[in-house]
Design a protein around this nucleic acid. Structure first.
Lengths: 188, 188
DNA sequence: TTCTTTGCAATGCAGTCGTATTGCAAACGG
DNA sequence: CCGTTTGCAATACGACTGCATTGCAAAGAA
């Protein structure tokens, strides 16, 4: 076989460009040509690696998910081994919040994809990590009465904080204060 | 002046059609011609009442806000005079959740507009009712230590529940249970 | 009736979209 | 060296977009 290139690398290169376009011009500005231009490649090459636009979108969606997961894992790993449950929980949840500009950019894209999945149900179970599983894990970190309602509420609160952070209604300081206040409530 | 028609009525007629298109085909399917077809009018008439598409979008955005507000006001009015604070709060917050199909449709549109406003900052302060004011009102309904963090958290929790309801991650029963659980926590 | 103004319909235009098609150069297997 | 296969570029096409323009019918004002 001629020409050795890593197709996965090319695809992520293109998906990264897609996310840059989506982050500052919106999902509606995501077209083959715009993405190609942003990636600095020809439109033909984009078509070569993604035969259809929906395929490209689906791949970019998985990249969004992976980035979020990586952010959380990095934050948790930085805690060292055997952190106290509350600290682990706070770190995990804070890593889900769009607190710096990079996370904000990813958050905008994730938010756009959130409406996108509503119209492409086939790709829907791929944006957020399995929510039920995450709720269960959070419930395991909470003290005594492991009411799964409390865990589900905590996750929803973080999601809502993310939305308001992206919308500019809450400041990062407010959002983290709210999160800590809720943890105070749950660990009281 | 010839031809008496109520322009406001025409505009809301068109905006309603826009919301129907957006609700089940997404904001990206919102075009002058599609909206006109959905409204059962000519494309020329849409142009007559909205000289530009952005103007139509901005108007539809205000309709989304008004519908949400109406939903809340209706629910609160049904309580009768002088309801207990907790009941008032629960009613108000539950009215923000997309629990039935009509509210879900509006919620999908609102979610789409949420990403839309990120790219049209001029129209941004018009989707959600003034959040700071709402937080303050909620704080006033909470018992003793009126920590505004608790109110802001409650509102974020409801927003997150809405997102997860629309995404199908939480069921309506789960969402209301979570809300009640949080109110238990705050009113303990 | 005549005139003027408004409400709307129809058409045209330049641009962008996603996708199919074609062509060619570079790299390996033989 | 040769043929084949792969990686990519370029172009073409029909559908669609938002918007400008034009034309006309209906309804008061005169």
């Amino acid at each position: 076989m001629p020409r050795k290139v890593d197709p996965r690398q090319r695809r992520t290169l293109i998906a990264d460009a897609l996310m840059r376009v989506a982050a500052d011009r919106g999902l509606e500005a995501v077209s083959l040509r715009h993405v190609a231009a942003e990636a600095g490649v020809s439109a033909g090459m984009v078509q070569h690696y993604f035969t259809t636009k929906d395929e490209m979108m689906a791949f970019a969606l998985s990249v969004v998910r992976d980035r979020g997961r990586a952010r959380v894992e990095a934050a948790v790993a930085a805690l060292g081994p055997d952190p106290r449950p509350r600290l682990l929980l706070r770190t995990l949840l804070a890593a889900l919040l769009p607190l710096d500009e990079a996370a904000r950019a990813d958050g905008r894209v994730a938010l756009a994809f959130l409406s996108w999945t509503a119209l492409h149900p086939a790709a829907a179970p791929g944006l957020r990590p399995d929510t039920a599983q995450l709720v269960e894990f959070i419930a395991g970190l909470l003290p005594r009465p492991p009411a799964s309602d409390a865990a589900a509420g905590l996750l929803a609160l973080v999601e809502g904080l993310g939305v308001y952070l992206l919308g500019g209604q809450y400041t990062p300081a407010q959002a983290t204060a709210v999160l800590d206040h809720q943890l105070d409530l749950l660990f009281a």
